[in-house]
Amino acid sequence: MSEADSGAVVDDDRDEDQGMSKAKRLEREGDVAADYLEGLLDIADLDGDIDMDVESDRAVVSVLGDDLDVLVGENGEVLEALQELTRLAVVRETGERSRLMLDVGAYRARRRAEVSDLAKRVIEAVRTSGESESLGAMSPFERKVVHDAVAEAGLQSSSEGEEPRRYVVVMPPV
């Protein structure tokens, strides 16, 4: 399967890789998640196709369909809850902690684009003013998008406050 990167030097062996390769484990996570979610879609009579992928060392499972807003909810709260349960279902089957990411109706993809745009504007503002700026409350996923963009731009950031009001502060480079 992952012959393509067999030339790379120990790039995906951060954890103890006993028995199963990381790629195999992530694939198995995706399979368990897909079964769990498909069962729910069937019972709830919702139309959705399930797509599996691996992105920066984590399994990504996407439920694709036009009429899935009910599984996203306001500010993605239903999506977060469903991701939490899906991870537990994976842990039950594999016995290992899961960082699986769930997307529904491309909600995360859309939010990622929106949050990246916002991050770009804030990074520019902080560069220009030399002053820190606080963003609004965000989910862990959205904060990660901001932290990644900030790090790439060579600035600093941290998360402050308590869930669900946790937010990112973008700071000028030290």
């Binding site: 909810g73 239903v78 809850a81 939490e84 349960l85 537990l88």
Partner: peptide
Amino acid sequence: GKVIGRGGRTASSFRTVIGAL
């Protein structure tokens, strides 16, 4: 204990998903 979760977190996830449906 598992279905309730730490601080009721898992129970709350079940409630959120079922509440949405």
